[in-house]
Amino acid sequence: MVKWKYFVTFLLASSFLTACAAQEMTAATATAPTHESAAPAATLLPEPAPVVDHCLECHTDKDKLTALAKEEETGHNSESEGVG
């Protein structure tokens, strides 16, 4: 009886492991990158916005921006005269 139990357990374990191995192979085969498409697809996906976006938190705060934003000193063409 004990031998029979060992035999059944061994059989189930073997079946389980075989099934997993097959699934892994299938998955690996299905997602194997093709030479043409895989690399660009990875770089084309835009990075999603984070839950707390510090950039947005600041750039939507008028008071904070008023305190921090400075006039850029481009002074471009400041001494120019006449029609450009």
Binding site: P46, P48, A49, D53, L56, T60, K62, L65, T66, A69
Partner: peptide, 23 residues
Amino acid sequence: PWEKVFIARDEFLATAHGQMACT
């Protein structure tokens, strides 16, 4: 100066570009 870099939160977040991280 502040106006030049002020983002209209609700309007911007409602667009496709608003779904992406600023970075």
